[in-house]
């Protein structure tokens, strides 16, 4: 091995690795630094200058605004959506994976085909429907579209998962006196925990960052989710760059904190979620 220590790969690898590290992190550093500057500083000093002092006034200003309302809305909408996604998709997946009925194959194919439908096509009809239902400009307007657009991938992941549960467990449960509903609830649902975690992580992150439906189906800041905080603040502070970047930092923080706790799980969840057949 030591004779190879000077091969081109040994040099190229750290160089490339550090180069991309710079590409990835420099924008983040720019955001954080600038958000700690005063507005005057951004005009007077070059961008790469360190902030003259740690100035948290931008953050305070943002936090005293509606930031926590946006955060609360996001938490409510995403937790309700993910809960509904988990239950409905696991039920459907169980039927598609384990119950024998004639339409299982075609129905599975049809649901999975839903993964390539561009969501923006449904935007206008969903907007009209939401208006008609009287849900327009409420956080709850988002739950229906969020669940529906997450279902195809979730059903796909969980069906694949449940197909791998040994047939004998089902038979043992049958002998133990369970019907299809108990078999699902007592055996398949708890056994699908890893699959459910993947579904929750993938959809949770996707929906947490979702922009267009939230933008169209809600209009007042009291009812909007976190990604729109940036959008709304941007309108509000148009020229105050440090304040806008403070919002960018703050809205990105929750996911980054969650990510810091469970990186491996999140990376794997995002991958499994995107790797369709």
């Amino acid at each position: 091995m030591s004779s190879r220590s000077l091969s081109p790969g040994r040099i190229a690898i750290p160089v490339l690795g550090l180069f991309w590290l710079a590409v990835t992190t420099l924008p983040f550093i720019f955001v954080v630094f600038t958000s700690l500057k005063t507005q005057q500083e951004t005009y007077a000093n070059p961008v790469w200058a360190l902030p003259e002092s740690l100035n948290f006034s931008n953050y305070l200003e943002v936090l005293q605004g509606l930031f926590f309302t946006y955060l609360k809305n996001s938490v409510i909408v995403i937790s309700i959506s993910v809960a509904i996604i988990l239950i409905t998709s696991s039920m459907a997946a169980y039927a598609l994976a384990r119950l024998k009925f004639r339409l299982a194959g075609p129905l599975f194919a049809l649901i999975v085909a839903g993964m390539i439908v561009p969501l923006h096509i449904t935007l206008v009809p969903v907007y009209l429907m939401t208006r008609d239902m009287g849900l327009y400009d409420t956080p709850f307007a988002l739950i229906g579209p969020y669940v529906a657009t997450s279902l195809p991938i979730s059903v796909f992941i969980l069906t694949e998962f449940m197909r791998q549960v040994p047939k004998e467990l089902e038979e043992a449960a049958l002998l133990d006196g369970c019907g299809p509903f108990k078999i699902f609830w007592k055996i398949f649902f708890p056994l699908s925990r890893p699959g459910l975690a993947t579904v929750a992580i993938y959809n949770g992150i996707m929906l947490w960052n979702e922009f267009i439906f939230a933008y169209v189906l809600t209009s007042s800041p009291q009812n909007r989710t976190l990604p729109l905080a940036i959008w709304d603040f941007q309108g509000q502070y148009s020229a105050n760059i440090p304040a806008i970047l403070a919002v960018v930092t703050l809205t990105s923080l929750p996911l980054i904190i969650v990510y810091a706790i469970g990186q491996e799980r999140i990376v794997n969840g995002m991958m499994a979620g995107s790797l369709k057949g």
Partner: peptide
């Protein structure tokens, strides 16, 4: 059962 079919959870 041959593979015991114990409920893993």
């Amino acid at each position: 059962f041959q593979n015991y079919a114990l409920y893993p959870h």
